[in-house]
Write a protein that binds this DNA or RNA. Structure first.
Length: 803
DNA sequence: GCAGAAACGTTCTAGACAGCATGTC
DNA sequence: CTAGAACGTTTCTGC
């Protein structure tokens, strides 16, 4: 099928695709069109990575927009949201606009309402539903990318519930689900009432094989000699082999440390083939990496990059990650060794993919557990760059013949696992049951169960009572913690229906009519009204796990005196929303001591030391809390990453999460009417900017971060007002660059921020630095010196006191 | 007896969504 | 139950 045969697209869309060199549709795309993708029909497309899934999505969305509708594209990662947005921006050429909504970056709601296509993470969509964004009811088409992630224990249920809610909000909604090839695409299609396109077709041939000894054996029976030199690792031989042909490679390993070690070793291979131009480009890239963060991880990465190799894992900052990804796509970097992050993230294809480790540490399995077929296939699917490589190769490594055979059986010839809903797990239901009640999708137990019936879980589950049992457990948990209230019997339903306030009247109606007909058949037998309390509404809107909210609420209620920063940091660190920081051996003692020193600061009751597991969690949270306190005490990034043995990306992640949770804690504090809201706000601001209390004011001026604030403070400039009055020479000296100094002064509201002909004035040692005492820069510095001298006199005293 | 090498033992292990307000891909 | 790298500690070896 040719592009020009397509109908129903916005005018200009076809020529746009033709300009891009797309003339003929790939077979799966043509199949999708035949199945009605451009006519609003539901569709599940289970096709390999990089075989034109995005085009299927684009055709569906564009035709929906042409019919006067609005489309939503759901992605699993923030990084993918910006990638897709950049791709869809090209449609602006023919008048189709795109907006993004993620936690980091959101266009305002009204503005989103004017966009034709919206790209968002599944959590953000869920949150938008909870907060009743009105443009959601205008949606006519929703695309769910990587829908197989429904299988994910943590985040799958969100996607599942969100899709169910969107469909309930608008029963006419077209659903296009894009999935990797999975074992049960037909089940997904059944669930979504969709047609199925299920194929292994790829635009570039993918050869899968196993390397063992000196030979690389492919699934089609072909063999290639890849000798391993003495003292050389298998993966090094494979990288060298393909590099001699000008191809790049991707090596997947199972831990960060392995990724770093492999990158270091592979640097010896990649450095051999670099041209002078590449070397200087790489040196530039290395400099950028060092500039982004001054930590050991960054140093190591930069050292590798100079030799044309890199590692990639979640310990890198997001800037570093995209630097590495871009350089690899530009063929500047020859090899990346990565943890599985890369397989799920943005598109980084390579000629050859080497899956070195196929087992990974898994505490729940009590040791090393083999990876899922689906996961391995996702990695292998990164092989073959469209338009660049004649074919892609995906290679597993075996040490002996038996292992080689096992790898063929287990991965090369194996079908991927089926996708199984994880919704019935209690943590998932805790959140979603509350949200479902709070946003009015269900008002009774039966209504709730009826809503849950529309999920994939229900369509898969043969074990009837399970969901109901867990739901009941969750309901009583929510009730115990004052997130919901149950009242009355069936006769109350009418009343509550009348005065129920909800953005989703239609959904509520549906739910209630469902509950009327549905026979609960549960243990209670009688109908009760479920309603979220004010606290419950807040928790749902804040997107908190109810258990996190309960922990925070109890912690704040238990505080008899003003909580310290450490107390609050430990509190949010022990909620399930904070990713756990591992307690290393020996650290239980270190933090045990810290615990006895600062026990009084911690909020709530510590578990007894005899409950080993819970006490350890408590200490692990203390460790995270201490990390946040260190950060908020202006310790260097380098010191912290070193002290806690983490990467810059981990630190930023922790800080980010803490910021979010403390923001939520602030809302909870006003909800439960405690007097500690101010303490929470301050702790949050300190974490946000990474500064001590005394710098909070300075740091509120945009352009001033923790470092500049500290230097200004040391020079006697303690608050924004002082920026307006202090000697420009001093400011220039402290802030270094003229441009930054001007910007900052402007942001601080100084009337004449110009730094023209201002000479920097060194400040000695942190004392003797009163701005008024400098006369060399003449009239400019003395314009407002009444307030100036005052402030500076104070500055001197307090900064002297500090030293 | 001692330095340095080899053997042995221990430790550790992937991933990253969200609020809100502000200003930007 | 199924690993493997890095580092620390002990033991071995050759002088």
């Amino acid at each position: 099928m040719n592009v020009e045969e397509l109908s129903g697209l916005p005018p200009g869309a076809r020529s746009h695709f033709e300009e891009q060199g797309i003339e003929e549709l790939y077979p799966p795309q043509a199949e999708a069109v035949k199945a009605g993708a451009t006519e609003g029909e539901n569709l599940v497309a289970a096709v390999p990575t990089a075989s034109g899934k995005t085009m299927i999505a684009a055709l569906s969305m564009l035709s929906a927009v042409q019919r006067g509708g609005k489309a939503l594209y759901i992605v699993p990662l923030r990084a993918l949201a910006s990638e897709k947005k950049a791709e869809f921006d090209a449609y602006e050429e023919f008048g189709v606009t795109t907006g993004v909504a993620t936690g980091n970056y959101e266009s305002t709601s009204e503005w989103l309402a004017t966009k034709d296509i919206i790209v968002a993470t599944s959590e953000k969509v869920d949150s938008l539903v909870r907060n009743g964004a009105d443009w959601l009811s205008d949606l006519t088409c929703v695309v769910s990318d990587e829908v197989h992630l429904i299988d994910d224990r943590n985040r799958g249920p969100t996607l599942e519930v969100t899709l169910a809610k969107l469909r309930r909000l608008n029963p006419q909604l077209q659903v296009v689900a894009l999935s990797a090839t999975v074992g049960n695409a037909d089940e997904l299609a059944d669930w979504l009432d969709a047609d199925l396109v299920d194929t292994d077709w790829r635009p570039i041939d993918l050869q899968m094989g196993v390397h063992y000894g000196n030979a690389l054996n492919f699934d089609d029976g072909e063999t290639r000699e890849v000798p391993v030199e003495a003292g050389e690792k298998q993966e090094a031989a494979l990288v060298r082999d393909i590099l001699e042909e000008g191809g790049s490679s991707l090596v997947f390993v199972n831990s960060r440390r392995n990724a770093e070690a492999a990158a270091r070793r592979l640097g010896q291979v990649s450095s051999r083939e670099l041209t002078a131009g590449e070397q200087s480009d790489l040196a530039e890239l290395a400099a950028e990496i060092r500039e982004d963060s001054d930590t050991e991880t960054s140093q190591d990465l930069a050292d590798c990059v100079e030799r044309g190799s890199a590692f990639h894992h979640a310990g890198l900052s997001s800037t570093q990650r995209s630097l590495v990804e871009d350089a690899f796509r530009d063929r500047l970097l020859k090899v990346i060794s990565a943890t599985p992050t890369l397989a799920a993230g943005v598109n980084t294809p390579a000629r050859r993919v080497i899956v070195r480790d196929w087992r990974r540490f898994d505490p729940s399995a009590g040791g090393m557990a083999p990876l899922d077929v689906l996961e391995i296939h996702q990695m292998m699917g990164r092989a073959g760059r469209p338009g660049l490589d004649p074919y892609g190769e995906a290679v597993l490594l075996a040490k002996n013949h038996d292992e080689s055979q096992e790898l063929f059986d287990r991965y090369v010839w194996a079908e991927p696992e089926p996708v199984r809903s994880k919704l019935a797990a209690e943590p998932a239901l805790r959140t979603h049951v509350l949200a479902t009640i709070a946003s009015g999708f269900a008002r009774t137990r039966a209504g709730l169960l009826e809503f849950l019936e529309a999920t994939l879980y229900a369509s898969q589950s043969s074990e009837g009572g399970r969901l109901e049992r867990v739901t009941d457990d969750v309901l009583s948990y929510l009730e115990r913690n004052d997130f919901i209230e149950r009242s009355g019997g069936p006769e109350d339903t009418l009343n509550s229906e009348a005065d129920a306030a909800s953005a989703f009247t239609s959904a509520a109606d549906l739910a209630d009519s469902g509950s009327g007909g549905g026979d609960s058949g549960g243990t209670t037998g009688q109908e009760e009204d479920l309603e979220a309390t004010s606290l419950g509404h807040t928790v749902s809107r804040l997107y908190l796990d109810p258990m996190s909210a309960a922990e925070i609420v109890h912690g704040l209620e238990d505080a008899d005196e003003r909580p310290t920063a450490l107390g609050l940091y430990q509190l949010v660190s022990r909620t399930p929303d904070m990713y756990e920081l591992y307690l290393r051996s020996g650290e239980d003692e270190t933090f045990g001591e810290l615990y006895y020193e600062r026990e009084r600061e911690l909020l709530g009751d510590a578990p007894s030391e005899f409950e080993e597991e819970r006490f350890e969690d408590w200490l692990a949270a203390l460790k995270t809390g201490k990390l946040l306190e260190d950060w908020a005490s202006e310790d260097d990034e380098e010191q912290i990453t070193e002290r806690y043995k983490i990467g810059p990306g981990d630190l930023r992640g922790k800080v980010d999460t803490a910021e979010w949770l403390l923001g939520a804690a602030e809302s909870l504090a006003s909800e439960i009417d405690t007097e500690w809201a101010v303490a929470v706000r301050e702790a949050r601001a300190r974490v946000e900017h990474g500064v001590s209390e005394e710098l909070l004011e300075l740091v509120s001026v945009s352009g001033i971060g923790r470092k500049r604030a500290r230097r200004l403070y040391a020079a006697g400039i303690e608050e924004p007002a002082a920026l307006r009055s202090a000697d420009k020479g001093v400011i220039l000296h402290v802030l270094k660059g003229e441009k930054t100094a001007e910007n900052i002064l402007e942001n601080a509201g100084r009337e004449d921020p110009s730094m023209d002909s201002v000479e920097p004035i060194p400040v000695e040692g942190g004392s003797g630095l009163s701005g008024a005492s400098n006369s060399s820069s003449g009239e400019l510095s003395t314009t407002e010196n009444d307030t100036n001298t005052d402030a500076d006199a104070d500055d001197n005293q307090s900064s002297l006191g500090d030293f």
